[in-house]
Design a protein around this nucleic acid. Structure first.
Lengths: 241, 241
DNA sequence: AAGACCATTCGGCGATGCCGAACGCTAGTA
DNA sequence: TACTAGCGTTCGGCATCGCCGAATGGTCTT
Protein backbone atom coordinates (compact mmCIF):
# COMPACT_ATOMS: atom_id res chain seq x y z
CA UNK A 1 0.00 0.00 0.00
CA UNK A 2 1.65 3.17 -1.20
CA UNK A 3 1.22 5.97 1.26
CA UNK A 4 0.70 8.93 -1.01
CA UNK A 5 -1.64 7.09 -3.37
CA UNK A 6 -3.68 5.91 -0.42
CA UNK A 7 -3.87 9.46 0.82
CA UNK A 8 -4.95 10.74 -2.57
CA UNK A 9 -7.82 8.27 -2.64
CA UNK A 10 -8.76 9.24 0.89
CA UNK A 11 -8.89 12.85 -0.26
CA UNK A 12 -11.40 11.82 -2.90
CA UNK A 13 -13.38 9.95 -0.24
CA UNK A 14 -13.46 13.04 1.94
CA UNK A 15 -14.64 15.09 -1.02
CA UNK A 16 -17.55 12.72 -1.43
CA UNK A 17 -18.92 13.82 1.92
CA UNK A 18 -19.72 17.40 0.96
CA UNK A 19 -20.24 19.54 -2.12
CA UNK A 20 -17.10 21.55 -1.48
CA UNK A 21 -14.37 21.60 1.13
CA UNK A 22 -11.48 23.87 1.97
CA UNK A 23 -7.95 22.56 1.96
CA UNK A 24 -7.84 22.91 5.72
CA UNK A 25 -11.00 20.90 6.17
CA UNK A 26 -9.62 18.08 4.09
CA UNK A 27 -6.35 18.15 6.00
CA UNK A 28 -8.15 18.18 9.34
CA UNK A 29 -10.38 15.30 8.30
CA UNK A 30 -7.30 13.26 7.44
CA UNK A 31 -5.08 14.38 10.29
CA UNK A 32 -2.40 15.80 8.00
CA UNK A 33 -0.68 19.12 7.48
CA UNK A 34 -2.43 21.36 4.93
CA UNK A 35 0.73 21.64 2.88
CA UNK A 36 0.90 17.85 2.59
CA UNK A 37 -2.64 17.71 1.29
CA UNK A 38 -1.95 20.59 -1.03
CA UNK A 39 0.56 18.62 -3.04
CA UNK A 40 -1.85 15.73 -3.41
CA UNK A 41 -4.73 17.98 -4.38
CA UNK A 42 -2.64 19.76 -6.96
CA UNK A 43 -1.92 16.45 -8.64
CA UNK A 44 -5.57 15.46 -8.59
CA UNK A 45 -6.34 18.90 -10.00
CA UNK A 46 -4.00 18.39 -12.95
CA UNK A 47 -5.91 15.25 -13.90
CA UNK A 48 -9.36 16.77 -13.48
CA UNK A 49 -10.24 14.50 -10.59
CA UNK A 50 -10.95 17.59 -8.54
CA UNK A 51 -11.67 21.18 -9.50
CA UNK A 52 -11.12 24.37 -7.60
CA UNK A 53 -13.70 27.12 -7.56
CA UNK A 54 -12.13 30.26 -8.92
CA UNK A 55 -13.72 32.66 -6.44
CA UNK A 56 -13.71 30.81 -3.14
CA UNK A 57 -10.71 28.55 -3.70
CA UNK A 58 -12.66 25.58 -2.38
CA UNK A 59 -12.28 22.12 -3.85
CA UNK A 60 -14.83 19.67 -5.20
CA UNK A 61 -14.83 16.53 -7.30
CA UNK A 62 -13.99 17.01 -10.97
CA UNK A 63 -15.33 15.77 -14.29
CA UNK A 64 -12.62 13.12 -14.72
CA UNK A 65 -14.45 11.10 -12.08
CA UNK A 66 -17.50 11.02 -14.31
CA UNK A 67 -15.50 9.88 -17.31
CA UNK A 68 -13.92 7.14 -15.25
CA UNK A 69 -17.26 5.90 -13.98
CA UNK A 70 -18.71 5.86 -17.45
CA UNK A 71 -15.83 3.84 -18.86
CA UNK A 72 -16.25 1.41 -15.98
CA UNK A 73 -19.88 0.87 -16.97
CA UNK A 74 -19.02 0.46 -20.64
CA UNK A 75 -16.46 -2.21 -19.85
CA UNK A 76 -18.70 -4.18 -17.52
CA UNK A 77 -19.84 -7.45 -19.06
CA UNK A 78 -22.30 -7.90 -16.20
CA UNK A 79 -24.11 -4.74 -17.20
CA UNK A 80 -24.16 -5.51 -20.90
CA UNK A 81 -25.57 -8.98 -20.40
CA UNK A 82 -28.03 -7.96 -17.71
CA UNK A 83 -29.57 -5.10 -19.66
CA UNK A 84 -32.08 -7.07 -21.77
CA UNK A 85 -32.99 -9.37 -18.88
CA UNK A 86 -33.87 -6.56 -16.52
CA UNK A 87 -35.88 -4.74 -19.16
CA UNK A 88 -37.97 -7.88 -19.58
CA UNK A 89 -38.20 -8.41 -15.87
CA UNK A 90 -39.39 -4.87 -15.25
CA UNK A 91 -42.02 -5.21 -17.96
CA UNK A 92 -43.23 -8.59 -16.68
CA UNK A 93 -43.42 -7.73 -13.00
CA UNK A 94 -44.16 -4.03 -13.07
CA UNK A 95 -41.48 -3.58 -10.40
CA UNK A 96 -38.27 -1.62 -10.46
CA UNK A 97 -35.27 -3.82 -11.20
CA UNK A 98 -31.67 -3.17 -10.18
CA UNK A 99 -28.35 -4.86 -10.74
CA UNK A 100 -25.62 -4.13 -8.23
CA UNK A 101 -21.99 -5.01 -7.50
CA UNK A 102 -20.15 -5.06 -4.16
CA UNK A 103 -17.98 -2.18 -2.97
CA UNK A 104 -16.66 -2.83 0.50
CA UNK A 105 -19.59 -2.49 2.86
CA UNK A 106 -21.90 -1.06 0.23
CA UNK A 107 -23.46 -2.06 -3.04
CA UNK A 108 -23.41 0.09 -6.17
CA UNK A 109 -26.19 -0.05 -8.75
CA UNK A 110 -24.75 -0.65 -12.24
CA UNK A 111 -27.97 -1.17 -14.19
CA UNK A 112 -31.63 -0.40 -13.56
CA UNK A 113 -34.98 -0.62 -15.29
CA UNK A 114 -37.27 1.01 -16.08
CA UNK A 115 -35.44 3.97 -14.48
CA UNK A 116 -31.81 3.99 -15.69
CA UNK A 117 -31.07 7.11 -13.63
CA UNK A 118 -30.77 4.89 -10.56
CA UNK A 119 -27.41 3.74 -11.88
CA UNK A 120 -24.67 4.85 -9.53
CA UNK A 121 -26.58 4.97 -6.30
CA UNK A 122 -24.92 3.42 -3.27
CA UNK A 123 -26.71 1.51 -0.49
CA UNK A 124 -25.21 -0.09 2.64
CA UNK A 125 -25.03 -3.82 2.07
CA UNK A 126 -26.65 -4.81 5.35
CA UNK A 127 -29.83 -2.87 4.64
CA UNK A 128 -30.94 -4.13 1.24
CA UNK A 129 -31.71 -7.42 -0.43
CA UNK A 130 -29.00 -6.91 -3.04
CA UNK A 131 -26.47 -6.44 -0.28
CA UNK A 132 -27.62 -9.47 1.69
CA UNK A 133 -27.00 -11.63 -1.35
CA UNK A 134 -23.47 -10.28 -1.68
CA UNK A 135 -22.89 -10.64 2.06
CA UNK A 136 -24.06 -14.25 1.87
CA UNK A 137 -21.37 -14.96 -0.70
CA UNK A 138 -18.63 -13.05 1.05
CA UNK A 139 -18.39 -10.31 -1.57
CA UNK A 140 -19.36 -7.60 0.91
CA UNK A 141 -18.37 -7.09 4.54
CA UNK A 142 -20.43 -5.14 7.05
CA UNK A 143 -18.24 -2.17 7.84
CA UNK A 144 -20.64 0.31 9.38
CA UNK A 145 -23.55 -1.55 11.04
CA UNK A 146 -25.91 1.36 11.53
CA UNK A 147 -29.65 0.87 11.03
CA UNK A 148 -31.19 3.04 8.32
CA UNK A 149 -34.79 2.66 9.41
CA UNK A 150 -36.48 1.20 12.48
CA UNK A 151 -36.85 -2.03 10.53
CA UNK A 152 -33.18 -2.59 9.77
CA UNK A 153 -32.15 -5.98 11.11
CA UNK A 154 -28.68 -6.27 12.59
CA UNK A 155 -26.75 -8.34 12.06
CA UNK A 156 -28.16 -9.63 8.76
CA UNK A 157 -29.77 -13.02 9.31
CA UNK A 158 -30.44 -16.16 7.34
CA UNK A 159 -27.50 -15.82 4.99
CA UNK A 160 -27.38 -19.61 4.80
CA UNK A 161 -30.93 -19.61 3.53
CA UNK A 162 -29.96 -17.03 0.93
CA UNK A 163 -27.28 -19.37 -0.38
CA UNK A 164 -29.64 -22.33 -0.35
CA UNK A 165 -32.57 -20.67 -2.07
CA UNK A 166 -30.81 -18.07 -4.17
CA UNK A 167 -33.11 -15.41 -2.75
CA UNK A 168 -32.74 -12.61 -0.20
CA UNK A 169 -35.52 -10.41 1.13
CA UNK A 170 -35.69 -7.01 2.74
CA UNK A 171 -38.73 -5.27 4.21
CA UNK A 172 -38.38 -1.54 4.70
CA UNK A 173 -34.84 -1.86 6.05
CA UNK A 174 -33.34 0.80 3.80
CA UNK A 175 -36.30 3.01 2.90
CA UNK A 176 -39.70 3.01 4.61
CA UNK A 177 -42.36 1.90 2.18
CA UNK A 178 -39.91 -0.01 0.03
CA UNK A 179 -39.15 -3.73 0.06
CA UNK A 180 -36.86 -5.84 -2.06
CA UNK A 181 -35.93 -9.32 -3.20
CA UNK A 182 -32.64 -10.23 -4.84
CA UNK A 183 -30.74 -13.15 -6.35
CA UNK A 184 -27.03 -13.75 -6.99
CA UNK A 185 -25.35 -13.41 -10.37
CA UNK A 186 -22.11 -15.28 -10.95
CA UNK A 187 -19.41 -15.88 -13.52
CA UNK A 188 -17.64 -19.19 -13.99
CA UNK A 189 -15.77 -18.89 -10.72
CA UNK A 190 -17.31 -16.28 -8.45
CA UNK A 191 -20.39 -14.28 -7.56
CA UNK A 192 -19.98 -10.94 -9.29
CA UNK A 193 -23.22 -9.15 -8.47
CA UNK A 194 -26.89 -9.39 -7.73
CA UNK A 195 -30.16 -8.63 -9.46
CA UNK A 196 -33.14 -7.50 -7.44
CA UNK A 197 -36.66 -6.16 -7.46
CA UNK A 198 -37.86 -3.02 -5.71
CA UNK A 199 -41.37 -3.65 -4.43
CA UNK A 200 -43.67 -1.09 -2.75
CA UNK A 201 -44.55 -2.12 0.82
CA UNK A 202 -48.19 -2.35 -0.20
CA UNK A 203 -47.38 -5.00 -2.81
CA UNK A 204 -45.30 -7.16 -0.45
CA UNK A 205 -44.90 -10.11 -0.51
CA UNK A 206 -44.68 -10.50 -4.27
CA UNK A 207 -46.40 -13.34 -6.08
CA UNK A 208 -44.40 -16.60 -6.35
CA UNK A 209 -44.40 -16.18 -10.12
CA UNK A 210 -42.62 -12.84 -9.68
CA UNK A 211 -39.87 -14.41 -7.59
CA UNK A 212 -39.53 -17.21 -10.11
CA UNK A 213 -39.04 -14.66 -12.86
CA UNK A 214 -36.36 -12.99 -10.77
CA UNK A 215 -34.51 -16.26 -10.30
CA UNK A 216 -34.82 -17.11 -13.96
CA UNK A 217 -33.24 -13.77 -14.83
CA UNK A 218 -30.42 -14.26 -12.31
CA UNK A 219 -29.72 -17.72 -13.67
CA UNK A 220 -29.92 -16.57 -17.27
CA UNK A 221 -27.46 -13.72 -16.76
CA UNK A 222 -25.12 -16.00 -14.83
CA UNK A 223 -25.21 -18.55 -17.61
CA UNK A 224 -24.30 -15.90 -20.18
CA UNK A 225 -21.35 -14.94 -17.99
CA UNK A 226 -20.06 -18.50 -17.93
CA UNK A 227 -21.53 -19.92 -14.73
CA UNK A 228 -22.25 -23.64 -14.91
CA UNK A 229 -24.57 -24.02 -11.91
CA UNK A 230 -27.13 -21.88 -10.14
CA UNK A 231 -27.50 -20.94 -7.33
CA UNK A 232 -23.73 -20.53 -7.30
CA UNK A 233 -21.54 -22.54 -4.91
CA UNK A 234 -19.96 -20.58 -2.11
CA UNK A 235 -16.22 -21.26 -2.30
CA UNK A 236 -15.44 -20.87 1.40
CA UNK A 237 -18.43 -22.92 2.47
CA UNK A 238 -17.65 -25.84 0.21
CA UNK A 239 -13.98 -25.67 1.16
CA UNK A 240 -14.68 -26.08 4.87
CA UNK A 241 -17.27 -28.81 4.26
CA UNK B 1 2.93 17.28 -8.65
CA UNK B 2 3.45 14.17 -6.57
CA UNK B 3 5.04 11.42 -8.57
CA UNK B 4 3.27 8.37 -7.21
CA UNK B 5 -0.16 9.99 -7.23
CA UNK B 6 0.39 11.12 -10.78
CA UNK B 7 1.38 7.59 -11.72
CA UNK B 8 -1.69 6.16 -10.03
CA UNK B 9 -3.92 8.44 -12.06
CA UNK B 10 -2.07 7.50 -15.20
CA UNK B 11 -2.72 3.86 -14.38
CA UNK B 12 -6.42 4.66 -14.29
CA UNK B 13 -6.07 6.47 -17.62
CA UNK B 14 -4.39 3.43 -19.15
CA UNK B 15 -7.16 1.24 -17.81
CA UNK B 16 -9.67 3.43 -19.65
CA UNK B 17 -8.20 2.31 -22.94
CA UNK B 18 -9.21 -1.32 -22.73
CA UNK B 19 -11.60 -3.58 -20.87
CA UNK B 20 -8.82 -5.38 -19.04
CA UNK B 21 -5.06 -5.18 -18.96
CA UNK B 22 -2.28 -7.24 -17.45
CA UNK B 23 0.13 -5.71 -15.00
CA UNK B 24 2.86 -5.97 -17.59
CA UNK B 25 0.80 -4.17 -20.20
CA UNK B 26 0.14 -1.30 -17.83
CA UNK B 27 3.81 -1.12 -16.89
CA UNK B 28 4.87 -1.17 -20.53
CA UNK B 29 2.38 1.56 -21.44
CA UNK B 30 3.84 3.75 -18.73
CA UNK B 31 7.48 2.83 -19.18
CA UNK B 32 7.87 1.53 -15.64
CA UNK B 33 8.92 -1.69 -13.98
CA UNK B 34 6.05 -4.09 -13.31
CA UNK B 35 6.88 -4.22 -9.64
CA UNK B 36 6.53 -0.45 -9.42
CA UNK B 37 3.09 -0.57 -10.96
CA UNK B 38 2.14 -3.46 -8.74
CA UNK B 39 2.37 -1.39 -5.59
CA UNK B 40 0.22 1.35 -7.11
CA UNK B 41 -2.35 -1.10 -8.38
CA UNK B 42 -2.57 -2.82 -5.03
CA UNK B 43 -3.45 0.48 -3.43
CA UNK B 44 -6.07 1.25 -6.04
CA UNK B 45 -7.39 -2.27 -5.50
CA UNK B 46 -7.84 -1.68 -1.77
CA UNK B 47 -10.07 1.30 -2.54
CA UNK B 48 -12.13 -0.41 -5.21
CA UNK B 49 -10.85 1.88 -7.95
CA UNK B 50 -9.70 -1.21 -9.82
CA UNK B 51 -10.67 -4.85 -9.53
CA UNK B 52 -8.71 -7.95 -10.37
CA UNK B 53 -10.34 -10.85 -12.14
CA UNK B 54 -10.00 -13.91 -9.99
CA UNK B 55 -9.22 -16.34 -12.79
CA UNK B 56 -7.00 -14.41 -15.19
CA UNK B 57 -5.41 -11.98 -12.75
CA UNK B 58 -6.05 -9.12 -15.14
CA UNK B 59 -7.05 -5.69 -13.94
CA UNK B 60 -9.95 -3.45 -14.86
CA UNK B 61 -11.64 -0.36 -13.46
CA UNK B 62 -13.60 -0.88 -10.26
CA UNK B 63 -16.98 0.20 -8.90
CA UNK B 64 -15.54 2.99 -6.76
CA UNK B 65 -15.09 4.97 -9.98
CA UNK B 66 -18.82 4.79 -10.57
CA UNK B 67 -19.62 5.97 -7.06
CA UNK B 68 -17.23 8.86 -7.46
CA UNK B 69 -18.76 9.90 -10.76
CA UNK B 70 -22.23 9.77 -9.34
CA UNK B 71 -21.33 11.92 -6.35
CA UNK B 72 -19.76 14.39 -8.76
CA UNK B 73 -23.04 14.68 -10.64
CA UNK B 74 -25.05 15.04 -7.45
CA UNK B 75 -22.87 17.89 -6.26
CA UNK B 76 -22.94 19.77 -9.56
CA UNK B 77 -25.06 22.90 -9.36
CA UNK B 78 -24.78 23.29 -13.13
CA UNK B 79 -26.55 19.99 -13.64
CA UNK B 80 -29.26 20.66 -11.09
CA UNK B 81 -30.14 24.06 -12.52
CA UNK B 82 -29.86 22.95 -16.14
CA UNK B 83 -32.15 19.94 -15.81
CA UNK B 84 -35.55 21.68 -16.16
CA UNK B 85 -34.25 24.00 -18.90
CA UNK B 86 -33.00 21.21 -21.11
CA UNK B 87 -36.17 19.19 -20.64
CA UNK B 88 -38.15 22.17 -21.91
CA UNK B 89 -35.70 22.80 -24.71
CA UNK B 90 -35.86 19.20 -25.89
CA UNK B 91 -39.64 19.29 -25.87
CA UNK B 92 -39.80 22.63 -27.74
CA UNK B 93 -37.25 21.86 -30.41
CA UNK B 94 -37.56 18.11 -30.79
CA UNK B 95 -33.77 17.93 -30.74
CA UNK B 96 -31.45 16.17 -28.36
CA UNK B 97 -30.02 18.54 -25.77
CA UNK B 98 -26.75 18.16 -23.91
CA UNK B 99 -24.94 20.05 -21.19
CA UNK B 100 -21.19 19.55 -20.99
CA UNK B 101 -18.19 20.67 -18.95
CA UNK B 102 -14.53 20.95 -19.98
CA UNK B 103 -11.96 18.24 -19.22
CA UNK B 104 -8.62 19.10 -20.73
CA UNK B 105 -8.98 18.64 -24.47
CA UNK B 106 -12.37 16.99 -24.22
CA UNK B 107 -15.85 17.79 -23.05
CA UNK B 108 -17.90 15.55 -20.77
CA UNK B 109 -21.68 15.45 -20.93
CA UNK B 110 -23.19 16.02 -17.48
CA UNK B 111 -26.87 16.29 -18.41
CA UNK B 112 -28.93 15.32 -21.43
CA UNK B 113 -32.51 15.27 -22.60
CA UNK B 114 -34.58 13.45 -23.67
CA UNK B 115 -31.97 10.67 -23.41
CA UNK B 116 -30.28 10.85 -19.97
CA UNK B 117 -28.09 7.84 -20.82
CA UNK B 118 -25.85 10.17 -22.81
CA UNK B 119 -24.51 11.49 -19.52
CA UNK B 120 -20.85 10.63 -19.17
CA UNK B 121 -19.89 10.49 -22.81
CA UNK B 122 -16.67 12.23 -23.80
CA UNK B 123 -16.06 14.09 -27.06
CA UNK B 124 -12.90 15.87 -28.25
CA UNK B 125 -13.43 19.59 -27.80
CA UNK B 126 -12.27 20.59 -31.28
CA UNK B 127 -14.88 18.42 -32.99
CA UNK B 128 -18.17 19.50 -31.44
CA UNK B 129 -20.11 22.68 -30.90
CA UNK B 130 -20.04 22.27 -27.13
CA UNK B 131 -16.28 22.04 -27.23
CA UNK B 132 -15.90 25.05 -29.53
CA UNK B 133 -17.75 27.14 -27.00
CA UNK B 134 -15.43 26.02 -24.22
CA UNK B 135 -12.39 26.55 -26.45
CA UNK B 136 -13.59 30.05 -27.22
CA UNK B 137 -13.57 30.87 -23.53
CA UNK B 138 -10.29 29.18 -22.77
CA UNK B 139 -11.79 26.40 -20.69
CA UNK B 140 -10.52 23.70 -23.05
CA UNK B 141 -7.21 23.37 -24.87
CA UNK B 142 -6.74 21.37 -28.05
CA UNK B 143 -4.44 18.56 -26.97
CA UNK B 144 -4.86 15.98 -29.70
CA UNK B 145 -5.83 17.71 -32.97
CA UNK B 146 -6.93 14.65 -34.93
CA UNK B 147 -9.93 14.89 -37.24
CA UNK B 148 -12.79 12.54 -36.37
CA UNK B 149 -14.56 12.72 -39.72
CA UNK B 150 -13.66 14.16 -43.10
CA UNK B 151 -15.51 17.30 -42.07
CA UNK B 152 -13.53 18.07 -38.95
CA UNK B 153 -12.06 21.57 -39.24
CA UNK B 154 -8.62 22.13 -37.80
CA UNK B 155 -7.80 24.29 -36.10
CA UNK B 156 -11.23 25.40 -34.86
CA UNK B 157 -12.17 28.70 -36.47
CA UNK B 158 -14.26 31.72 -35.64
CA UNK B 159 -13.86 31.50 -31.89
CA UNK B 160 -14.18 35.28 -31.74
CA UNK B 161 -17.57 35.00 -33.40
CA UNK B 162 -18.57 32.42 -30.84
CA UNK B 163 -17.77 34.88 -28.05
CA UNK B 164 -19.60 37.69 -29.82
CA UNK B 165 -22.77 35.80 -30.67
CA UNK B 166 -22.84 33.24 -27.89
CA UNK B 167 -23.25 30.49 -30.46
CA UNK B 168 -21.01 27.79 -31.92
CA UNK B 169 -21.83 25.45 -34.78
CA UNK B 170 -20.59 22.10 -35.94
CA UNK B 171 -21.55 20.21 -39.09
CA UNK B 172 -20.70 16.52 -39.07
CA UNK B 173 -17.29 17.13 -37.51
CA UNK B 174 -17.68 14.50 -34.79
CA UNK B 175 -20.23 12.07 -36.21
CA UNK B 176 -21.38 11.88 -39.81
CA UNK B 177 -25.05 12.76 -40.05
CA UNK B 178 -24.99 14.76 -36.85
CA UNK B 179 -24.70 18.52 -36.42
CA UNK B 180 -24.77 20.72 -33.39
CA UNK B 181 -25.16 24.21 -32.00
CA UNK B 182 -24.09 25.29 -28.53
CA UNK B 183 -24.01 28.28 -26.18
CA UNK B 184 -21.94 29.11 -23.11
CA UNK B 185 -23.15 28.78 -19.53
CA UNK B 186 -21.41 30.83 -16.87
CA UNK B 187 -21.39 31.53 -13.17
CA UNK B 188 -20.69 34.94 -11.65
CA UNK B 189 -17.02 34.84 -12.62
CA UNK B 190 -16.33 32.21 -15.24
CA UNK B 191 -17.72 30.05 -18.00
CA UNK B 192 -18.45 26.68 -16.41
CA UNK B 193 -20.02 24.72 -19.24
CA UNK B 194 -22.08 24.75 -22.39
CA UNK B 195 -25.53 23.71 -23.48
CA UNK B 196 -26.11 22.47 -26.98
CA UNK B 197 -28.49 20.90 -29.46
CA UNK B 198 -27.87 17.73 -31.44
CA UNK B 199 -29.44 18.15 -34.86
CA UNK B 200 -29.68 15.52 -37.61
CA UNK B 201 -27.82 16.59 -40.75
CA UNK B 202 -31.11 16.56 -42.64
CA UNK B 203 -32.59 19.18 -40.32
CA UNK B 204 -29.60 21.53 -40.52
CA UNK B 205 -29.55 24.48 -40.27
CA UNK B 206 -32.11 24.81 -37.50
CA UNK B 207 -34.79 27.51 -37.54
CA UNK B 208 -33.81 30.86 -36.01
CA UNK B 209 -36.46 30.31 -33.34
CA UNK B 210 -34.69 27.12 -32.31
CA UNK B 211 -31.38 28.92 -31.86
CA UNK B 212 -33.13 31.66 -29.92
CA UNK B 213 -34.59 29.05 -27.58
CA UNK B 214 -31.10 27.63 -27.09
CA UNK B 215 -29.70 31.01 -26.19
CA UNK B 216 -32.58 31.74 -23.86
CA UNK B 217 -31.86 28.49 -22.03
CA UNK B 218 -28.13 29.23 -21.81
CA UNK B 219 -28.85 32.70 -20.45
CA UNK B 220 -31.47 31.39 -18.04
CA UNK B 221 -29.19 28.75 -16.57
CA UNK B 222 -26.33 31.25 -16.33
CA UNK B 223 -28.55 33.69 -14.48
CA UNK B 224 -29.55 31.04 -11.96
CA UNK B 225 -25.87 30.34 -11.38
CA UNK B 226 -25.16 33.97 -10.60
CA UNK B 227 -24.01 35.39 -13.93
CA UNK B 228 -24.88 39.03 -14.43
CA UNK B 229 -24.40 39.36 -18.17
CA UNK B 230 -24.78 37.10 -21.18
CA UNK B 231 -22.98 36.24 -23.39
CA UNK B 232 -20.29 36.07 -20.73
CA UNK B 233 -17.19 38.26 -20.89
CA UNK B 234 -13.94 36.50 -21.68
CA UNK B 235 -11.53 37.41 -18.89
CA UNK B 236 -8.31 37.18 -20.94
CA UNK B 237 -9.77 39.07 -23.88
CA UNK B 238 -11.04 41.98 -21.82
CA UNK B 239 -7.78 42.09 -19.87
CA UNK B 240 -5.68 42.53 -23.00
CA UNK B 241 -8.10 45.02 -24.53
C1' DA C 1 9.27 -31.52 -20.70
C1' DA C 2 10.72 -27.04 -21.60
C1' DG C 3 9.60 -22.39 -22.42
C1' DA C 4 6.94 -18.09 -21.78
C1' DC C 5 4.03 -15.40 -19.43
C1' DC C 6 1.59 -14.14 -15.47
C1' DA C 7 1.34 -11.80 -10.58
C1' DT C 8 3.91 -11.42 -6.64
C1' DT C 9 7.76 -10.87 -2.94
C1' DC C 10 11.94 -9.06 -1.14
C1' DG C 11 15.79 -5.88 0.01
C1' DG C 12 18.98 -2.07 -0.57
C1' DC C 13 19.94 2.35 -2.55
C1' DG C 14 18.46 6.79 -3.44
C1' DA C 15 15.30 9.93 -5.03
C1' DT C 16 11.00 11.73 -3.24
C1' DG C 17 7.59 13.64 -0.86
C1' DC C 18 6.51 15.04 3.97
C1' DC C 19 6.21 18.67 7.21
C1' DG C 20 6.91 23.35 9.75
C1' DA C 21 7.32 27.89 8.93
C1' DA C 22 6.78 31.96 6.33
C1' DC C 23 4.21 34.55 2.55
C1' DG C 24 0.43 37.12 0.09
C1' DC C 25 -4.16 37.61 -0.03
C1' DT C 26 -9.13 38.70 1.06
C1' DA C 27 -12.65 39.62 4.35
C1' DG C 28 -14.54 40.99 8.24
C1' DT C 29 -13.96 44.04 12.36
C1' DA C 30 -12.88 47.58 15.77
C1' DT D 1 -7.53 52.85 8.85
C1' DA D 2 -5.27 49.23 11.14
C1' DC D 3 -5.59 44.89 12.64
C1' DT D 4 -6.74 40.02 13.09
C1' DA D 5 -8.10 35.62 11.18
C1' DG D 6 -8.72 32.64 7.81
C1' DC D 7 -7.74 31.11 3.29
C1' DG D 8 -4.43 28.80 -0.36
C1' DT D 9 0.22 28.74 -1.51
C1' DT D 10 5.51 28.49 -1.55
C1' DC D 11 9.93 26.95 0.05
C1' DG D 12 13.75 24.08 1.92
C1' DG D 13 15.93 20.37 4.76
C1' DC D 14 15.69 15.97 6.82
C1' DA D 15 14.29 11.41 6.76
C1' DT D 16 11.27 8.46 5.03
C1' DC D 17 9.10 6.21 1.67
C1' DG D 18 8.74 4.17 -2.48
C1' DC D 19 11.32 2.72 -6.72
C1' DC D 20 13.59 -0.83 -9.11
C1' DG D 21 16.19 -5.42 -10.35
C1' DA D 22 16.23 -9.89 -9.36
C1' DA D 23 14.20 -14.05 -7.84
C1' DT D 24 9.83 -17.07 -6.80
C1' DG D 25 5.81 -19.99 -7.70
C1' DG D 26 2.30 -20.44 -10.39
C1' DT D 27 -0.40 -21.75 -15.06
C1' DC D 28 -0.93 -22.27 -19.73
C1' DT D 29 1.25 -23.26 -24.28
C1' DT D 30 4.23 -25.44 -27.29
Amino acid sequence: MIQSVDRALRVLAVLQGARRRSLGEIAAAMGLAPSTVHGIVRTLLAHGMVVQERDTGLYRLGPATLKLGNVYLDNLELRAHAQPWIADLAAQTGCGVRVAVPLGGDVVVVAAAPTPDEVGIVVPAHACALGKVLLAYGMCTVTDPRPMTGETQLPPRDLGTVRRTGLANEVEEAVLGECGAASPVATADEVCGAVGLVVPAGAWPPAPATLDALRRAARGISRELGASSWPPRFAEESATA
